[in-house]
Design a protein around this nucleic acid. Structure first.
Lengths: 209, 209
DNA sequence: TAGATTGTTAATCGATTAACAATC
DNA sequence: TAGATTGTTAATCGATTAACAATC
């Protein structure tokens, strides 16, 4: 933890990437790595690596480098990946289903404990270890289960109504795949937006220019 | 186009967001908007809005503001969204399927013209207007159709082999949903990575700290 | 003309890179 | 000890914000 307090968002957003590369190095049984070598692999500067890693204390050793497993564990702790925040999925369409099946929640600090849908055709279907429930049962469910976060996989125009209910139930953290601007209405919500179309537009720009 | 040449990546990455908000304003029949008002809606500073928009020429008018539709069109042009880059989908699993069905390619500068899969169970299935093809037919297909970009929706360990084939076929642009680092092998590839797990880790961090 | 709002320059702030002394 | 590599400070670079003259 240590110098934790003042870590800037630019650094935070790089942490998952360090974490991924360190996990890979660990899988390959690499014990030690220098900032220079890590920088090469990750295609950044060694200065940045050292500067970044030093935000949370000196885990390197002059003359030798960093312990891969120690560093990985440290970043894991800082990111909070050892938590099991309880998340529910809102919307079991193509996207929600793909998310539920593909994302390794357990290793990313979460645990997917429920899935809600309005389409009656889908209610009752199995989705991994879960059963798709009617959105009508949201209140009931949240009163009986602690819920820390919601994953919004419903179309933009349907978000507001459900969001209001989730907020009323005390949920303040959202992984948002819709284009509805959650923070515009609820300033205190912690929202991580995934705008796939923005990403595709950026690719388009780069192909064009 | 004009001052186009030197636009920084920070600005580029903001363009899709301007584009989305302007599209919404246009749908609501708003003709004109000031930098101050746009900044409010988007939760940024008016200075940034003006600075950003000025990268591609003075489309505002002192005393009045900006024409919503003109600005929107201008950004559309800069992003290259009026193109129809021909893209193929590699992998018709949950994720690939969701992408194919949900993304509005036509309005984002692309056109999805093919879909390839190794799993013989899925080959022949319909996917929107497309039929899932065997990955064996990749070469044949690419020789008969111009292909500008590939969307990588296959597991990391399968990427390299297919990537090599795509690269050999002349494809240099990738929308990459796998965690395989395409640029590490092919420096000249234009790669837009979507790391959903990075995004979720960032949410975890923010919930923890 | 008076009011509004841009375009643009200058000031500030933050992030990245370079450099090197500390030290394993 | 000599070599390697960190931790950290200082220099540079770029991005954001503030300010205001230009102008519709």
């Amino acid at each position: 933890m240590s110098k934790n307090d003042s870590i800037s968002m630019s650094v935070i957003r790089r942490l998952p990437r360090y974490y991924r590369f360190l996990t890979e190095l660990e899988e390959r049984k690499t014990d030690r790595i220098s900032s220079t070598r890590l920088a090469e692999i990750m295609n950044v500067t060694a200065s940045q690596v050292r500067q970044d890693l030093n935000c949370f204390g000196g885990f390197g050793q002059q003359g030798y480098g960093y312990s891969v497993s120690q560093l990985r564990q440290e970043i894991q702790k800082i990111l909070g990946l050892n938590n099991h925040y309880r998340a529910i999925l809102i919307g079991a369409g193509n996207f929600g289903t793909a998310i539920a099946k593909h994302i390794d929640f357990r290793n990313l600090g979460f645990s997917l404990i429920g899935c809600f849908e309005t389409d009656s055709e889908k209610i009752g279907e199995r989705l991994g270890e879960l059963t798709v429930q009617s959105e009508d049962r949201l209140e009931e469910f949240c009163e009986n289960n602690r819920v820390d976060a919601a994953i919004m996989c419903i179309p933009r125009q349907n978000v507001e109504a459900t969001l209001d209910r989730l907020y009323a139930l005390g949920i303040r953290s959202f992984w948002n795949f819709s284009h509805y601007d959650i923070n515009a209405k609820y300033r205190d919500a912690v929202v991580e937006n995934v705008h796939l179309s923005d990403s595709l537009m950026t690719l388009c720009y780069r192909m064009t220019n």
